[in-house]
């Protein structure tokens, strides 16, 4: 087990490294540069350009820039944002918490609700509830998340006026204590619902098909023949076997959520990393962008390692 964990962690580090390198190259291959952004559209003074390039190290060969960045990143220094002129690390850490709050809440709610719906539908396969669940799961699965977000805003904010449509806190009031958290929760309802609604179908379908499949396994027939109660068979033997695909999907889906939440953050003006990333891309703010990419790949790699370890503890066939 120890060997397996070490192996997974090393694989994770390697993945981060590769992703980091690819990102470094791609963003620099794209036309445009942060210097043009700083200098403005109409300014084309070669002296100023050279001075700025020297300041940010863009006069060095690409390969050298890469190693300098790598060295600094290892010592925890992600550099200065070219646009904001602030420590990248502090910009990102400000924005990371709201994103994690959104992503983790949505992922956990989706996996729990989706899996329970799947369990119910599998137990009552062919029933009206099953048909209804399957139907709406297809519907939400085929909906673009940002569009669903907009529709929810129209219904619950514009028409019904029940919920705030943007932001994480109401900036017109200065709430403290419990009221502050309640306000954050109120602001979270719509973006989290959007993510959850889009994610539920994935967990619903995987849980349902996996349970139906497990129920038809030979060992279930054997256990029934022993006179064991249906409840015990389901809770102990079916679930443990059927939950494995859900864990795999959870890992994959978390990776998608961490990176893909950007669009939802923009729709709801959520002060997370997604919004920061888009601005950074548009302004070619290399240090900020690289910082975000790094944090994201570290989070995804971390989630994958954790998921792999959970999987290995649940499925004895995985241990090497």
């Amino acid at each position: 087990m120890k060997k397996y964990v070490t192996k997974r962690v090393l694989m994770g580090v390697l993945t981060i490294f590769v992703v980091f390198t690819i990102n470094f190259l791609i963003i620099r291959l794209a036309p445009g540069s942060p210097i043009s952004t700083i200098m403005g559209k109409d300014n084309d003074d070669p002296l100023l350009r050279a001075a700025l390039e020297a300041k940010y190290g863009f006069d060095q060969p690409l390969i050298l820039q890469y190693f300098i960045y790598l060295k600094n990143a290892f010592s925890g220094d992600l550099g200065l944002s070219i646009i904001y002129n602030k420590e990248v690390l502090s910009i990102i850490s400000e924005r990371l918490l709201p994103t994690l709050l959104l992503v983790l809440t949505a992922a956990l709610l989706a996996v729990v609700i989706g899996t329970f719906m799947g369990m119910y539908a599998a137990k009552h396969e062919g029933s009206r509830v099953d048909v209804f669940f399957s139907g709406i799961s297809y519907m939400f699965n085929s909906m673009p998340a940002f569009w669903l977000g907009l529709i929810l805003i129209i219904i619950f904010s514009s028409v019904l006026g029940l919920l705030p449509s943007y932001g994480m806190i109401n900036s017109r009031t200065s709430l403290t204590g419990v009221d502050y958290y309640l306000d954050v929760i109120r602001h979270m309802i719509l973006p989290v619902s959007t993510l959850v609604l889009v994610e539920i179908p994935i967990y619903f379908r995987i849980a349902k098909s996996s349970i139906v499949q497990t129920l038809n396994e030979d060992f279930i027939v054997t256990l029934k023949a022993t006179g064991m109660s249906e409840r015990k068979i389901f809770n102990k033997y079916v679930l443990r076997n059927a939950i494995l695909p859900t864990i795999t999907i959870f890992g994959i889906s978390m990776g998608y959520l961490i990176t893909g939440v950007a669009l939802i953050e923009i729709v709801f003006a959520w002060p997370g990393t997604g919004d920061l990333m888009l601005t950074a891309i548009n302004q070619r703010d290399y240090p900020t962008l690289m910082g975000i990419y790094l944090i994201m790949s570290v989070s995804v790699a971390l989630v994958m390692v954790v998921v792999d370890i959970i999987y290995a503890t649940l499925d004895p066939r995985i241990r090497f």
């Binding site: 396994e217 030979d218 060992f219 054997t222 102990k236 033997y237 443990r240 076997n241 494995l244 649940l314 499925d315 004895p316 066939r317």
Partner: peptide, 10 residues
Amino acid sequence: KSMNALSPVH
């Protein structure tokens, strides 16, 4: 099929 007569994860 006794190969599958037992749960693989217990």
